[in-house]
Design a protein around this nucleic acid. Structure first.
Lengths: 187, 187, 187, 187
DNA sequence: CATGAATGAGGATTCATTCAT
DNA sequence: AATGAATGAATCCTCATTCAT
């Protein structure tokens, strides 16, 4: 692992544990095993480090979420794959998930471009559109469906973190997905 | 308005705008129209101010959310009242809602007691239990229903903030509630 | 006990325990059972309180030290009385003794007038002069004898505080006085 | 002189002049010609600076006090060497002496370990023991002799500071030592 | 006399950032 | 590229003192 990666890894751990402002860059450098100044060689400012970390995490998240979607035929199967991948990523990459949540609810979020915010929506809007056209999904605005979906997944992640024994329980995922599907499917 | 209230009001405004750590206590005092030391006369530390503000906001939120629930007969009417009150509070008290969200995703949240975290759940669990027993709601864990409900409301609030013209649209609330009701009602 | 006395008593206790600058006037007022402002009604400033406390303590010390000296005939008996009274006062009024020591080694000491500093010396100089003239004491400067005497007593007080079991031991006082007497008596 | 030494030198001067609590760290840094933060780079807290200064001064004092003692044969010659070295150090290093006195009479002194307090006693106890065994010194507890000796030296230092013309007067030192010697020698 | 809320200057400490090596 | 000593602005908090009641 090169120094840049070491710094990012240390930053992720400490920023999530202690919060953005309560984590000095010196602590990050120390945890990364590099000198104080080295951190600023790779990231011009602390903000750049945090924004860079967010970008890295988001890229990682999107990549993992889309895995296996190509092989799926039906809209429901595609949605299920994404739904499962999302929750799986948030559980296995708990620190990254927490970082994202903390980031999105901090003043840093205002620095994100419109484009950035809508990136995820765009990836899924074709699939949602297809679902609506095929009368599988409710005929409501695409971004409303996206919103509901996103928060449904957050609900399940939060619930799993409070009930960790369910993480390995395949039945629970089935149940949770069907709950969610009732929410958006056309009746 | 007494000085304590002035300080809390100024704190709410600034903390939401600039974030917890980027808001100096001096700025809060100035905005409240009191001397620097006065803030510390009412709140021993900045943390105590933030925790105190959270407690105040939570109390306000719970009070408003429960309004009018006594008059409702059916489980669905009760749930609808709470659902509507919640969203209404989050929209009309946008700053307070944002503060709560930022607070819950910050390291401050870890300072909350278990009791504190479950307070809202407890208030609603009887109603949820009644719904399950009467075969109106799905037969799944109470706290799972609570979780889903909570996040559904967050989704709608977030969606309304992105589409402010819908805030006055009664039809949208009907639509959104029915969506949500599909999610938890027994089929 | 009136409020002024209560304040002085509380000040003595806290100032000795925590030091002059680490003891807020608010803590003194609280310990004295009076309001913050009341302290400043009796003492215009914190410095005035400390100086006033010193003055009180010094007066108390001098009064006790001179007790019973009138009844003594010989120079040695007079010196012994003073020597014993001094040590006794420092042991029984330990807090006052410690306050005096801390005061004398602090920058406050520079605020004392020359007169103030020499008051004790003057009280004893006649006795010392008599001792020298009667060839009982060594023929060395009066203030040197006074200095040596003063520090001898401090030595014994310090030693007694480290060995508290000797405080009740009359033999020890005899021994200690003879040691000291060897120091200043003419041979 | 490196920055750490510059800070210690400035601290010594200012702390003695103005007292521990009346001397801001900013004033020390300024006097040392370094930035405010630099002081905290070398000393984590103001307390650590003061404790560190005390440790340095004590080391310096002990080193100077023991100089030349190896060459002395008799117990009296050894004691005289130490007595003279001690007074000499206190007079030439007046600021350090005053710092030590102020420190020992402040609440900082309670932070010293038992070991720390007894270090000087231990250095001299062999010599005192030898003196008692050879029937040169009075047969009284070793630590009592040490106490008396220590305070005798303080008395002379205090006297010399009030009478500076005697500092160069070799006869005075002879006189003062003989006075002291009468105090502890066996008769 | 007594109170205690209010003040605001002052001080210890932190920390992002720079830069000479 | 890497280091870590050095910087000084920024911030939390303290506390002597005032004053309206």
């Amino acid at each position: 692992m090169d120094k840049r990666a070491k710094i990012l890894a240390a930053a992720l751990k400490l920023l999530v544990e202690q919060g953005f402002h309560s984590t000095p860059t010196s602590a990050i450098a120390k945890a990364a095993g590099v000198a104080n100044g080295t951190l600023f060689h790779y990231f011009k400012t602390k903000d750049e480090l945090i924004l860079g970390l967010y970008a890295d995490i988001k890229k990682d998240s999107l990549r993992k979420i889309l895995q296996g979607i190509e092989g799926q035929q039906s809209v429901k199967a595609k949605v299920k794959t994404i739904w499962y991948n999302s929750i799986n990523w948030s559980i296995t990459e708990k620190e990254k998930h927490n970082f994202k949540q903390q980031f999105m609810h901090s003043p840093y979020a205002t620095q994100l471009s419109q484009e950035d915010l809508e990136e995820e929506l765009k990836l899924f809007s074709d699939m949602i559109k297809e679902g609506i056209e095929k009368k599988i999904l409710k005929d409501i605005p695409i971004d409303l469906i996206y919103h509901i979906t996103h928060y449904q997944m957050l609900a399940i992640v939060s619930y799993l973190n409070l009930n960790p024994h369910l993480i390995e329980d395949a039945d629970f995922y089935e149940l949770a997905f069907e709950l969610f599907w009732d929410n958006i499917k056309r009746v």
